[in-house]
Structures are given as structure tokens and as C-alpha cells.
Write a protein that binds this DNA or RNA. Sequence first.
DNA 1: CGGTATCCACATTGATACTG
DNA 2: CAGTATCAATGTGGATACCG
Lengths: 91, 91
Amino acid sequence: MIRDLLLGRSRFKDFLASPEGIPTNILSERLSRLLEHRVVTQVPATSGGRHLAYRLTKKGEALGAIILAMRDWGLVWEKGTRAGLVPMQVT
Amino acid sequence: MIRDLLLGRSRFKDFLASPEGIPTNILSERLSRLLEHRVVTQVPATSGGRHLAYRLTKKGEALGAIILAMRDWGLVWEKGTRAGLVPMQVT
DNA sequence: CGGTATCCACATTGATACTG
DNA sequence: CAGTATCAATGTGGATACCG
């Protein structure tokens, strides 16, 4: 999920669509906790629309370093680790 | 515990003595799993003695990068994070 | 000292149904 | 679409007692 956010995904449905197959209740609870710890914030998904999108805060973006370190470790030391995650464009 | 190993601690009792206060059964089970995944290996603690010590493998040492990334994140973003961990001397 | 063996408490997960 | 509400299943952790 954090990975999804780092990849630029931001909508509830995007997270649901991820290959893990997370149930809505779990996703919802996790988002609450991330909001609580200010790792993500909510922003309007579309201008004027009623739906919300989730964006990483600076604090959340900083987690990228950890995720990348884990990814690298996996690629080097664990067979079968796939490298889907590429650092996001800072556009 | 990985942190302890990175700091050069290697004995069962050393891990037990850590401030977390881990019970023997949990510690034992975790060491088994780390052995299984070849993150640690067993070596004789004293030459000739019957006791064992645990040492990180290369794979295990590589986890240091992740631990440090987490430590750094904590120091920057979470108040009250203490910085006990300093990278080990490569002697 | 370095573990095993029990047993219980609690947190996390997951499936599923329902709602504004 | 974006959740909330239940409930059962599983995992993980912790206390404690015991053993070679």
C-alpha cells in the first residue's frame, strides 16, 4: 500500500485492485492508522468531486528509503523477489 | 535482536538481557527461523566450550542497511526515537 | 546457560454483507 | 465508489515451569 502510494496510486479502489487482494475493512483501518500517524493525508480526488485521494506526506515519502532498502535486500538475497518498485518521478 | 547481532552481541543470554525482555521461548523460536533462512549461523562460543554463539551471515549483515534506514527515519520523523545503533566496526 | 513445553491473551487478518 | 459492521480463523507474544 505504501508501495502503491510511492508508485503514484492514490485511490481506495487502486489499493483494492493491487495483487494482494486486501479486503475493504483492513484497507480502511490501515488508512486510518496512517492518517493518525500523519504518514498520509486526504485530498480531493477530483476537483469538485466528492471522492477522496490519499497522498503521502513528507514523513510518508521518507519511508521510501526503507522500502527501497528492503527491495534491494530482497533482490540480492531472496530468490524470486520481483522488482516492481521503481522510485517515483518527482514531477 | 538483529540489532544486538549488529552490535556484536552473540549469545543467547545477551539477547535475553536486552531491554525488550524477550522470553526464552520466543527468542529460541526466532533464532530457529533466522537459522532456517540463513540470516544467522551458529559458531562455538568459546573454543572447546559446549555453548554456542550466533553470528550474522553476509545475508544477515546486509539487513543492516534496512535497520539503519529505519533508524534514520525514526530519528527524523518520530519524536522520542533513541539512537542506540551505530554501525559495527568491520575489524 | 541454553534451551523445550504449555497455555493463555491479544492483535491482525480475511470473508462477507451491507450502506450512503 | 468508499467505506462500516460482524465474526471466525490464525498468528504472535508473553508468563511460567521445567530440563540437560
